[in-house]
Nucleic acid binder design. Sequence first.
DNA 1: TCAAGTGATTAGCATATGCTAAGACTGATC
DNA 2: GATCAGTCTTAGCATATGCTAATCACTTGA
Lengths: 231, 231
Amino acid sequence: MHATLRDPEPPLTRSVEDYLKAIYHLSSQGGFAATSDIAALLEVAPPSVSGMVKRLSETGLIEHVPYRGVQLTAQGRRAALRMIRRHRVLEVYLSQQLGYDWDGVHTEAERLEHAVSDELIERMAKALGDPQYDPHGAPIPTAAGEIEEAELVPLADAPIGAVIEVRQVADEDAARLRYLAEQGLTPGTLLTVTERQPFNGPTIAKLRPSGEARVVGQELARSLWCRVVTP
Amino acid sequence: MHATLRDPEPPLTRSVEDYLKAIYHLSSQGGFAATSDIAALLEVAPPSVSGMVKRLSETGLIEHVPYRGVQLTAQGRRAALRMIRRHRVLEVYLSQQLGYDWDGVHTEAERLEHAVSDELIERMAKALGDPQYDPHGAPIPTAAGEIEEAELVPLADAPIGAVIEVRQVADEDAARLRYLAEQGLTPGTLLTVTERQPFNGPTIAKLRPSGEARVVGQELARSLWCRVVTP
DNA sequence: TCAAGTGATTAGCATATGCTAAGACTGATC
DNA sequence: GATCAGTCTTAGCATATGCTAATCACTTGA
Ligand SMILES: [Mn+2]
Ligand SMILES: [Mn+2]
Ligand SMILES: [Mn+2]
Ligand SMILES: [Mn+2]
């Protein structure tokens, strides 16, 4: 008996979709998403999360271990990846076809992701030539629900002397994105890490090939995800 | 004391926006929108409309005369026209830029209209060269809230012998739109009305310049809005 | 081993939106 | 002018989602 056949499955609400995405992001490093972390990410009060967690586990979208946290079920993960695909395809579309800057697309996509049809997303993806990454370097899941898992390290942890490539940047803070663009720290940029100051100080790196130096504070260096090219 | 200055005005919900559009359409011929007509158009029960009507009049978006119906206030009319602009710009964009057929755009726009930002709508309008009409011939309000008011008659009422131009077609029913496209009855088409059968029978017209005849049943002829070129 | 402290949950409430069933009003008809 | 059919509103309820205040439970340090 497939539940999907017996039950017409009401469409997920906007809230549910955002919770699933949040849980995906928070538990992607393996492990549980904590109530308080979900609350912080979605900017709601912890009891609101507890309430939603109850509903989502009753629906079979998540597993809940009380006082531990939650994890997505296979069904929940599918739903989350579908939303992430929508979000990232929208971001690419807005930036390529409608002239949005990379710091403006996230907010717009955050609302649109809940309103577009699958058909529209696939038309956009096709018009863009099926992009693999969003404007911030994040991989776009396929329509089938597969996603690239790259081994990235924050710039803050990159070994001194290594040549690294900036691959992905956290996209929620528009001001940060504008600053990074100014500094030329965008996905695809190659850097040589030259120095790291103690006591959570900045990482210093040289742009390649120009050799220009960049001093990147701890907080920023935590949000720049890089691939180590040569250690 | 401007309420807009005192009060940050919470954004309208999706439901409210759809009610305002419905009331606009139902009262555009002047007069009141009746509870039952709103209910039918939005596919909700009449008591749901009564409830919403109470909230909307408390907010100052509509005037309610009990047992009579409702009308938009100036503020409500502005909000309604903003939604209609969004809806129609989206329809044009989907059809011109993303290859949608004219029978598919309405449903997609009905959801997207609530999720897009004003900025996105204006970017789309600009990319399209500020279109004046949607794919079904309906006029697009300006960003300032002005809308063309054309004198149109349903094909069902067009005088025999007149030359008329199809200007606008009701867009909610996809099957009807597909049929009309097949028949070549799209905005811009010129027709000579040759005959109308009695007892609410069909209108018969010739396509210009080809001269091909079209027999259009009463129901369909009520949804084809035309401009009389020469009586 | 236990008592604090932190984080999670429950209790109780609010708002927006929908429903059905019951009652109230209006306009047309005799 | 009384009656009735149809329309509209009110009453009462349900669901989804959020909040604050109070309570509970796990972890950790004494
Ligand atoms: Mn979202
Ligand atoms: Mn992104
Ligand atoms: Mn709508
Ligand atoms: Mn239309």
